[in-house]
Design a protein around this nucleic acid. Structure first.
Lengths: 126, 126, 126, 126
DNA sequence: GTGGTCTAGACCACT
DNA sequence: GTGGTCTAGACCACT
């Protein structure tokens, strides 16, 4: 199975799930229209509380990545916007990794990088 | 005064203080050997509990940025290693800001960036 | 239960906890992967404020002895480096006790021993 | 001058003074009967509050190393017991330094050594 | 329930 | 006055 979460990571489990499903979708492993596993099924597979899976699905629905049909299940939308941006996402992700590497070499702590992302995000927002 | 914290930010107050003092030090506004305001003084200036300032000072001491003299106060060390890396720090910070901007344009959420920094950090560590 | 602290000792409570958990781990009484009691539980067992236990846990995490899973609890890492050094630690501890005994016989105060350890540590560091 | 104190050391200034005067006495640099500098004089030389010097002198007097004559000054006693134990003191000090070195090599923190000295002292006392 | 952060306030040793 | 430790208790996100 390709769903996997790391309970030791500082990233909340439900966010890990969100990122993973998005990633699988962008990489074409999951396709538009495809049915996702039910909350109970997925929670038993990845050994996580059903509430955690539910929270992830709700957020994905809010982002327009999935939709639910009462009684039938949860399905991936045909989100072309997201798919089109896949290459740029990849690039940003790689450049971020590059920066993390350089940071390590000059002794910048992870907490500092995270804080810089926070502050830059706030500036951009306003 | 140049110390300021933002109670609305998701970054913990004590971390904001750590980052700020480091930044002031790197920019040369605070100089090696200089005495920092006492815990009580600073806490009354920035309207924060003394324990919060204390936590920040203790972490800075752990990082070798400051040292304390019992009954006398807290002073900045002569941390040449940190000062020498100032330009590269600046550059990394700027490139990070650039990435945040680009991310915004293609709809990547802040939480996603934070998670990528987390995962990249873990990979680098091992 | 094996957790116990001495409020009359000059060693801070949180340090006593750190030393004790490390000791239990090294002696194999606590094992890698094992879950430590929750902060609230332990604090109620040893009659200490939760913040004090928290401080000890955070320092142990900094030392790589334990890790925390958000919302789940605190667990012992598989710190082989520490376990391998157990015999030498034991030996050093014993020889230290021997020196303390001899010191007592020729009227050397505890404070003097502590100071010698301090100064020797500083010399070694540089 | 041979009196020197280190304000950055975690050892209290008045204890540093005590240790230093004792050391100078044991090494024969200060001799029995010799007059020590007055509190005001010494405090101005080593740039320390007079109260700190006073506290050191009081403790040395309590230990029978010095005595004061009202209006004349402070003098070193003829403490043969202390002088006779000088070689063993030296040896213990050296062995302690050796242990500190070994500790460093197997990652034992200074705080741990200090704690072991504390606990061993308590055991011996009882 | 779990740990993380923060406040208010006390007490202590050292200067 | 200075930092260090500790308590009591609140609030938060995550599970």
């Amino acid at each position: 199975m390709f769903y996997r979460i790391d309970t030791k990571s500082p990233t909340p489990l439900y966010e890990q799930l969100i990122f993973q499903i998005k990633e699988l979708y962008i990489q074409g492993i999951l396709e538009p229209g495809e049915k996702l596993p039910s909350i109970r099924e997925l929670s038993s597979v990845i050994l996580v509380n059903p509430n955690t899976v539910s929270k992830a699905y709700q957020e994905l629905e809010r982002q327009g990545i999935i939709y639910t049909e009462r009684g039938r299940g949860t399905f991936l939308t045909d989100n072309t916007a997201l798919l089109e941006k896949a290459p740029e996402r990849m690039e940003i992700k790689n450049q971020l990794r590059e920066l993390v590497l350089r940071s390590r070499r000059c002794g910048i702590a992870k907490s500092e990088l995270l804080h810089w992302v926070e502050t830059a995000s706030e500036e951009v927002q306003s």
